[in-house]
Design a protein around this nucleic acid. Structure first.
Lengths: 199, 199
DNA sequence: AGCAAGACTTACCAATTGGTAGAGAAATGG
DNA sequence: CCATTTCTCTACCAATTGGTAAGTCTTGCT
């Protein structure tokens, strides 16, 4: 018998992996259980229903992301450098929890059972980030653009880069496989060039 | 009985819609047929297997996209304005075939049965676009950045914006629902600001 | 020791899935 | 007018799915 709540934790981890790669529909409780050397009913015992498992995985993993972003946004640090802190923060989370991005992609699909869950997590965060960017623009410290467009673009880019690795690899894009740190540096340079006024 | 190949065409259209919204696994042949007032076996008669149907949908719909992009890239038009032509072209396709973007998102997921098909379509296109951008940069007509990163970012942005409408709407982002033309104008302005040297 | 709660299992099920086999109906070409 | 091809149907199936019911084993508390 598994000590303490270890089994539940292992199920959450395996579910994250499976949902993020083959998707919600593509994940069968039988396979999931088999991969853990467990019976399917053990999963249902802990989470009652498959949909609940997805919600639990989302809740359990988006905490890293929201906490990291919250911290950056609420810091009183230097203004222009906060872009850098924002990007670094996102990349750090992506490095520590690479499977999270696959999950985000899966879960943000229209019609996903956990879409409402994700919305409740993301919307306030997005609102705060937009408010911050607009304040920066109003103060002339940032080039005037559509904040929501830029943020959604950045979000889609990170998720896309991490998630379409298979296609990138087939394209012979060795660069896609370079250490994340290098890509981060280039993304930073690009964002600085686009957002920070020439002088 | 349906005249000529009309039924086949209708199946392709309905399949595009279904694959693009609820995904491949989320699409059942029975439901698909029911929506068309047809029996499932009619679908299987025309496409033999579900996987073949997906491939056919991909082939049938990416033609618009590849042709439009091919045309822009091979045109000898003014250099800097080709960014604009590129964006306009993508948006035009997105307007005429709004479901295509949902399909692209679904199909570019790692593990999708049609992923190889998509790769073969996209890779040469991407190579040409990258080559063009790098030539522009070498000639000093475009700010120096990672061409692949920018292109993938733009791709992810368009797909993301079109595909995460549900979440955007819940976020109370009325702007997301504004006419596509407006968003296009803002994206254009952003790209110009980031890519074209100050002077 | 005894007992209750938690953890995991076996046994089973109704529903749905993609797919096969073969029979008719409609159009087409001679 | 007949024969062939194209198209759609009914009937059926094996496999997989998420989920229920009820049992067994372990652990911890008194």
């Amino acid at each position: 018998m598994a000590p303490r709540g270890e089994t539940k934790e292992r199920i959450l981890q395996a579910a994250l992996e499976s949902f993020g790669t083959v998707g919600y529909d593509g994940t069968s409780l039988d396979d999931l259980a088999a991969g853990l050397g467990i019976r399917k009913q053990t999963i249902l015992y802990h989470f009652v229903a498959k949909r609940n498992l997805l919600n639990a995985v989302v809740d359990h993993n988006t905490v890293y992301l929201t906490e990291a972003l919250e911290q950056v946004l609420s810091s009183k640090a230097s203004d222009a450098d906060r872009i850098e802190a924002l990007v670094r923060s996102v990349f750090r989370v992506a490095l520590e929890q690479p499977l999270l991005l696959g999950l985000l992609r899966e879960v943000s699909r229209p019609g996903s059972p956990a879409a409402p869950r994700l919305r409740n997590m993301m919307v306030p965060l997005m609102d705060r980030a937009v408010a911050w960017m607009e304040a920066e623009m109003a103060a002339g410290r940032m080039r005037r653009t559509d904040a929501q467009l830029v943020l959604l673009s950045a979000y889609s880019t990170v998720v896309g880069l991490a998630t379409e690795i298979e296609i990138l690899r087939a394209a012979g894009i060795e660069r896609a496989l370079r250490p994340v740190a290098l890509r981060r540096r280039e993304l930073l340079r690009f964002l600085r060039a686009s957002l920070i006024p020439a002088k």
